[in-house]
């Protein structure tokens, strides 16, 4: 109960005493900013599965870049774009429903990543774990700079695309009538999504970025109705989750990225429980 009984010691001292922890918090908050904002649209447009597929689909890009000595960020981006293109291709070429086409590519990309990493005997296999789970406790100035850039691009992109996204999410025909181009809007959203995922894999890793993408916006959608407010609430919930997760991970020596992800999901469950409870109470 020390977080209640001795608040300064539990909440403040770790940050006051450890500069790397402050950096880790900044990295987490910037990640939350990107992913919650994009994640709101992902949740509203039913793109969660694609979001998850992209988060894992960057792995072969990273693996191949690693093995050929190239830039892992570029590799990750290329893989993400390849997956987006692939889904589009399968969608036009076959009558399969979207989830099947995404699923097929998802597992294919993942398997490719494992094959590539295993073929490389020994060296570097540890780095794959790092991409999966992130290394937020090794964050430094360069990582923060990247995150600031991506966060800015993401937020600006979402603001610019706001009306187009709003209309095309709820009524595609209307969007076209007004003069928007829903296909292009969709593509732009996916590019921003890919960008956020790639930027976040340093901090929380590709396996866990999905939690930040989906859980805070999902929680926010249960609490408020209007989209801009939903984004703000998602960022607030995500930030609180990241802060609490970071502190719990510090005090109890648990895996940092996973703890933060767990807190976002707990926040969702608690909100759901409270909301259901309130609903029952009103009857």
């Amino acid at each position: 109960m020390t977080w209640l009984t001795d608040p300064v010691d539990w909440w403040v001292s770790p940050f006051a005493d450890n500069p790397f922890l402050r950096d880790a918090l900044w990295a987490a908050l910037l990640t939350v900013l990107c992913t919650s904002v994009i994640g709101t649209w992902v949740v509203l447009r039913g793109l969660s599965f694609l979001g998850d597929a992209l988060a894992h689909g960057v792995l072969p890009g990273i693996a191949i870049a690693f093995v050929t000595g190239g830039n892992t960020t570029v590799g990750a981006l290329l893989a993400a774009l390849a997956m987006v293109a692939g889904v589009q291709l399968i969608r036009t070429a076959s009558p399969l429903p979207d989830d099947a086409s995404i699923g097929v590519l998802f597992v294919g990309f993942l398997a490719l990543a494992v094959v590539v990493m295993s073929a490389q005997t020994g060296r570097g296999a540890g780095d794959l774990t790092r991409f999966l789970f992130g290394s937020i406790n090794a964050v430094d100035a360069g990582d923060l700079r990247t995150l600031i850039v991506v966060a800015t691009v993401t937020v600006v992109g979402v603001v610019v695309l706001h009306r187009a996204l709003l209309v095309s999410t709820f009524d595609v025909t209307q969007a076209r009538l007004i003069g928007f181009r829903p296909q292009l809007t969709h593509f732009a959203l996916l590019v921003l999504l890919a960008l956020s995922i790639v930027a976040s894999f340093e901090t929380v890793g590709t396996l866990l970025v999905f939690a930040f993408l989906i859980a805070p916006p999902a929680t926010a959608s249960m609490l408020v109705g209007r989209v801009p407010l939903m984004m703000v609430v998602a960022v607030m919930i995500g930030s609180a989750s990241a802060l609490i997760g970071l502190l719990i991970s510090y005090h109890h020596a648990t895996a940092t990225g996973a703890t933060m992800a767990l807190v976002t999901v707990i926040a969702f469950v608690v909100s759901l429980a409270v909301r259901s409870g309130l609903r029952l109470a009103r009857r």
Binding site: N18, F20, L21, A24, T129, F133, N137, A138, L246, S249, Y250, A253, T254, A255, T256
Partner: peptide
């Protein structure tokens, strides 16, 4: 081995 925040400290 996966290092924790305490390890970094």
């Amino acid at each position: 081995f996966e290092p924790s925040l305490r390890d970094r400290e």
